[in-house]
Amino acid sequence: MITDASPESGFSSDLEAALLEDLRASSAQTHNGRVDLAVRDDDGALLAGLAATTSYGWLRVNMLWVCSGHRRTGLGRQLMQRAFEQSLQKGCHATWLETSNPQARDFYKSLEFEVFAALTNEANDVPQGHTRWFLRRKLGPSLFGETS
């Protein structure tokens, strides 16, 4: 019997755990884990954050957000840098993400990401012309063109 699991708060975590258990049994794995980073003010309010996962040697950035009053201050770049550093320690060799925001796409391109795929709605699709870009980049000891 199929039921709607949307109201279950732990469903996604349970499903992910079951899937990862099966994958570990059948496929070579690297470190599967999370990279969750937060920037908070002195009162604990969230100013910026990044949520990502690691598997098969890839860092997948699921969410990156910076509150409007702190954009263009370097917080997003700093969060990405920290996520890259942590994922390298976990054995990752590359990172990927997706976005439908053209400004975010350009931000990621400035961090040396490249678009490797795009899904664009056709003329009769709603919303018309909407595009979701998929971006990737290699990781290494020299991030963002800096030398160590």
Rank of each mutant, 00 (worst) to 15 (best):
M1S: 03
I2P: 07
T3Y: 03
A5F: 12
F11L: 06
S12D: 13
D14G: 06
L20Q: 12
L20K: 08
L20Y: 10
E21T: 12
L23N: 14
L23I: 13
R24G: 13
A25E: 15
S26N: 14
S27H: 15
T30M: 03
T30K: 05
H31P: 00
H31R: 08
N32E: 12
G33F: 11
A38C: 06
V39G: 01
R40P: 00
D41V: 04
D42Y: 01
D43H: 10
A45W: 01
A45R: 13
A48Y: 07
A48S: 07
T53Q: 13
T54G: 05
Y56L: 14
V61T: 10
L64R: 08
L64V: 14
C67A: 15
C67D: 15
G69Y: 07
G74P: 09
L75K: 04
L79Y: 08
L79K: 05
M80G: 02
M80K: 06
A83K: 09
E85H: 10
Q86W: 07
L88K: 03
L88G: 02
Q89C: 03
Q89K: 11
G91Y: 04
G91M: 03
C92F: 07
T95Q: 04
T95E: 07
W96V: 00
E98Q: 11
E98T: 10
N101F: 01
A104K: 03
A104I: 04
R105I: 01
D106G: 00
Y108L: 00
L111R: 02
F113L: 02
E114R: 11
V115M: 00
F116W: 09
A118I: 04
L119S: 09
L119E: 12
T120Y: 06
N121C: 05
T131A: 01
R132C: 08
W133H: 02
R136Y: 03
K138A: 14
L143E: 09
F144G: 04
G145S: 12
